[in-house]
């Protein structure tokens, strides 16, 4: 390959005098570079466009929205926490808010644990929710762990849904999947999902016991519930389960310039029985 004489003039070499690179000469250098036909389409790194910040969608929980700004579209968001920490409640609230906005949503239910009555109480519009119940069709492969097979099913379904497009929120529920299995999902798969999301306005919501999408997640929220069990001294029939006090901690947010440290919020969920 041979460079044109004009370009070879500006190659950095010890023989060139330092005055060629002094301030003031830069604009002339760029001007001459831009005149070279081979380089007309090349933009200087300083002039590259910055990717616009993703649009944010409300979760339906004002406390969470004030902490995170909402769920970023075209991004992967994770909500994690132990059992009874409020993950499913947040997921249902997000899906319900999306269906109320007129968006179509999909729930990939790895453990077939979705409770329609809870979703109905949360205000879900069912005609806009696609529910996919994984796990049943693996009877032929009895030698395999059913939870591993269900996760595989869920990932295949997720791939298909992201390719189809048009959904506002796609939630994948790994809540009952042991972390050891969820962690086995290769990082390449999460990257692929992230790439598939980029040109769309879909929110991919992953519910799990611990963060599993690693660097592919744009938002990671950890939930923890603080159970105040009322009426401990009273007989069982005079007590009522009113709801959970949920505390949320922002573990990662790509939207913020500084890493989110110790950003917390708390909100209360209400049990259906409590009215």
């Amino acid at each position: 390959m041979s460079f044109s004489p004009q370009f070879s003039d500006y190659l950095v070499s010890p023989r060139r005098p330092a005055s060629a690179f002094i301030p003031g000469h830069g604009s002339a250098l760029l001007g001459r570079l831009a005149a070279i036909p081979k380089l007309t389409g090349v933009k200087p790194a300083s002039r590259l466009e910055v990717r616009p910040a993703p649009e944010l969608a409300a979760t339906g929980i004002p406390e969470l929205d004030s902490l995170t700004g909402g769920m970023p579209r075209s991004c992967l968001s994770e909500i994690c926490g132990p059992f009874s920490s409020g993950r499913t409640s947040v997921m249902l609230a997000t899906l319900a808010a999306a269906t109320k906005r007129g968006e179509f949503c999909a729930l990939i239910d790895t453990s077939d644990a979705f409770h329609p009555d809870s979703a109905g109480s949360a205000g879900m519009e069912f005609e806009r929710l696609l529910w996919i119940r994984c796990g049943e069709n693996n009877k032929r492969k009895k030698s395999r762990d059913p939870k591993t097979a269900a996760v595989e099913q869920a990932l295949r379904v997720l791939d298909l849904l992201l390719q189809a497009g048009g959904f506002g929120v796609v939630a994948i529920d790994f809540s009952d999947v042991p972390f050891q299995i969820a962690r086995r999902v290769p990082l390449a798969s999460w990257f692929r999902f992230q790439r598939a999301l980029e040109p769309t306005s879909t929110i991919l919501l992953v519910i799990a016991q611990a963060p599993c999408a690693q660097t592919c997640a744009s938002l990671v929220l950890r939930l923890q519930s603080r159970q105040n069990l009322p009426g401990l001294g009273l007989p069982a029939h005079s007590r009522i389960f009113e709801g959970m006090q949920v505390e949320g901690e922002l573990l990662r947010s790509r939207l913020m310039r500084k890493p989110a440290q110790s950003a917390h919020t708390s909100f209360r969920t209400k049990a259906v029985r409590a009215g």
């Binding site: 969608a57 929205d65 007129g102 409770h115 979703a119 949360a122 205000g123 969920t269 209400k270």
Partner: peptide
């Protein structure tokens, strides 16, 4: 069906006008 009636009320693009009730969900 993937077809449903559009929501009647006007909402802002990010949907902040909607207040959704946070219900304690049951996992069956």
């Amino acid at each position: 069906a993937g077809v449903a009636e559009r929501p009647r009320e006007n909402s802002s693009p990010n949907g902040n006008t909607h207040e959704t009730r946070v219900v304690t969900a049951l996992r069956i």
